[in-house]
Design a binder for these strands. Structure first.
Length: 426
RNA sequence: GGAGAUGUGGCUGAGUGGUCGAAAGCGCCUGAUUGCUAAUUAGGUGUACGGGUCAAACUGUACCGCAGGUUCGAAUCCUGUCGUCUCCGCCA
C-alpha cells in the first residue's frame, strides 16, 4: 500500500494515477478522515500524557487520601483518553480501508491507457516467427497425440482444469526448470524452494485477497492459510518484519514452487489446454533492492526473461504495460508475449512472463526495511518480481514453435544438456 | 497428536505491578592513554509515528513475540495466539 502521509500530501497526483489506472476510489473522504484522525490522535496522546503523569504521582503519594484523589483524577483522564482513542481507531480503520484500495503510483514512462490495448510493444525476441510448410497443431493436440498431457485423468482425479503431464514432456519440463535455475544461479540468485501454502496475512501483504467472491486463491478450510498463486507470496513473506542492512542488498531469490489459481470468472477466455490451468510449476525471480536501484534491477529482470526465451528459441515480443492494465502493487510492468502458432485461427501471442517493479508498495505492508550504516532510521526496500518460466506456458511455446511435420518436437539446443543430449521428443 | 518448558534491546542475560526504554556483560561508535598489532579507560550506542528546528538540540506517544484483558498504573498478573526447545507417540 501507499504511505498514508504520501496520499494525504499528494492527493491530486494520487487521484490522477487512479484515473489513469481506470479506478474509481473515493479519495475526497480520505483527506477529511485523515485530517480528523490526526486531530484525534493528538488529543488522545495529550490526554494519555496527563494520565501517565498523574499515575506516576500515585506511587509517590504520601498518604491514602492524596492517593485516592490522584487515582480518581487519573481514572477520569484514562476514560477521556479511551474515548478519544476509540474515535481515533474508528477513523484510522476507515482511512486504512481506503488506503488499501489505492494502487501504487505508476512509472512516469509507463504508457497511459485504460486497458491492455494501450500496452506498448518495446521489442521483439531474437527468434523470428517460423514459416511452417505443414499444418500446425496446437500444444494440446500434440500433447494428446503423444500421451504427454492428460486432462481427462486430471478431471477424474481432481477436477476440470487439472492435468497429468507424462513421458518425455516431463523430461522437457524438468530440463526447463534446471536450465532456468542454473542461469539464475549464475546471475547471483539464490535458489529457493518455498512452501506452496502461506498465511493469509502474507497473501494480503503481497496484494492478494484470499477470500471473497473474486478471489483467485484456494484457501484451506478451518485454517488461515491458503495455497499460493505464485512464489512471489512466499518469497516476499520470507522477509516480512525484517530490517536488513543496505550492504545485503540487492537480495535476489530464485523461487521454485507450484502455483494454484482458481481462475474464477475465467471461463470463455482463450484458454485451451495448458494456457489457463489451476496448478502449474513456476520458476520465479524475486528481488529486494535499495529504492534507487529498483529501476535498474527491473531492467535486469526483463533482460533475463528475454535471454531465457531467446535461449529456447521462442519468438516473442515485449510490452510495457499500460497504466490501466497494471496490477495494484505494480509501479511498472513488462510482459513477454510468446508467439503461439497453434493458438487461435492462425497463431496468437500469449503472455508467458511478467516482471513488475512494486517499489515500496508491498514492503510497507509487509514491513520490510533496510538500514544504512551510519545513517539514522530505516526505510522500506523495493520489491520486484519476474517470471523465469511458468512451466505450463513455456511448454506451450516450445511444443508449438518447435513442432515438426512428423509430429515430433525439436528440443532447443540450450535444453539438450539437461535431457541427456536428446535432440527430439515424440 | 500427547506432556512440559520458554519467548526481554545487534548478541548473552537480569528484572519484587509504580523511580523500566529497561541492570550487567559482549559487540559497535567516539575520545583519552600506553609504542606495540592489543590492553586500559571515559562516554555514547534501538525503532516507529507526531511536535519543534534552516538543520540540530529538545520534546510527546507507542513498542520487552503478537493480540486482547485486569489496574490509576503491566516487561512483571490473566486469556488467546504464534514461534522455539525437551520428552513421548507416529511417520517419508
Amino acid at each position: 500500500m501507499l504511505d498514508r502521509k504520501f496520499i494525504f500530501e499528494n492527493i491530486d497526483a494520487v487521484k490522477e494515477n487512479c484515473a489513469n489506472r481506470n479506478l474509481n476510489i473515493k479519495l475526497d473522504s480520505f483527506v477529511e478522515l485523515e485530517t480528523s484522525r490526526r486531530a484525534k490522535l493528538q488529543e488522545s496522546e495529550e490526554l494519555n500524557q496527563k494520565a501517565n503523569a498523574a499515575s506516576k504521582q500515585i506511587g509517590k503519594a504520601s498518604d491514602d487520601a492524596e492517593r485516592e484523589s490522584l487515582k480518581e483524577e487519573a481514572r477520569k483522564l484514562r476514560e477521556q483518553k479511551g474515548a478519544a482513542q476509540e474515535e481515533h481507531d474508528k477513523l484510522a480503520e476507515q482511512v486504512l480501508a481506503i488506503q488499501k484500495l489505492v494502487p501504487n503510483m505508476a512509472h512516469p514512462d509507463a504508457p497511459i491507457g485504460k486497458d491492455d490495448k494501450a500496452n506498448l510493444k518495446i521489442s521483439d525476441g531474437k527468434t523470428p516467427p517460423r514459416k511452417f510448410d505443414f499444418e500446425v497443431m496446437d500444444h494440446l493436440e500434440l500433447g494428446q497425440h503423444h500421451d504427454w498431457i492428460d486432462f481427462e485423468g486430471g478431471a477424474r482425479t481432481t477436477g476440470a482444469g487439472f492435468y497429468f503431464l507424462k513421458g518425455e514432456l516431463v523430461l522437457l519440463d524438468l530440463a526447463l526448470q534446471q536450465f532456468a535455475v542454473n542461469e539464475l544461479v549464475a546471475r547471483g540468485f539464490t535458489p529457493t524452494m518455498t512452501p506452496d501454502l502461506a498465511r493469509n496475512s502474507v497473501l494480503e501483504g503481497i496484494g492478494f485477497n484470499p477470500r471473497g467472491p473474486e478471489t483467485q486463491i484456494y484457501s484451506i478450510e478451518e485454517s488461515d492459510i491458503s495455497l499460493i498463486g505464485t512464489a512471489e507470496i512466499t518469497l516476499g513473506g520470507l522477509y516480512s518484519g525484517e530490517t536488513v542492512s543496505d550492504e545485503e542488498l540487492p537480495i535476489k531469490l530464485c523461487g521454485i514452487s507450484h502455483c494454484y489459481r482458481t481462475e474464477a470468472g475465467a471461463a470463455g477466455r482463450a484458454s485451451r489446454g495448458l494456457y489457463r490451468v489451476h496448478q502449474f510449476t513456476k520458476i520465479e525471480m524475486f528481488a529486494f533492492t535499495l529504492p534507487e536501484e529498483s529501476d535498474k534491477v527491473h531492467e535486469e529482470l526483463r533482460q533475463i526473461e528475454c535471454d531465457l526465451f531467446d535461449a529456447i528459441e521462442v519468438p516473442y515480443r515485449v510490452v510495457d504495460t499500460a497504466t490501466g492494465d497494471l496490477g495494484g502493487p505494480a509501479y511498472r510492468k513488462y510482459d513477454l508475449e510468446a508467439w503461439m502458432p497453434g493458438r487461435g485461427d492462425a497463431g496468437e501471442y500469449g503472455e508467458v512472463t511478467s516482471t513488475s517493479n512494486c517499489t515500496d508498495y508491498q514492503s510497507r505492508r509487509l514491513n520490510i526495511r533496510y538500514k544504512k550504516k551510519d545513517v539514522k532510521g530505516t526505510n522500506f526496500v523495493h520489491t520486484l518480481n519476474g517470471t523465469a518460466f511458468a512451466l505450463s506456458r513455456a511448454l506451450i511455446s516450445i511444443l508449438e514453435n518447435h513442432q515438426n511435420a512428423d509430429k515430433s518436437v525439436t528440443v532447443p539446443e540450450a535444453l539438450r544438456p539437461y535431457m541427456g543430449g536428446r535432440e527430439k521428443i515424440g
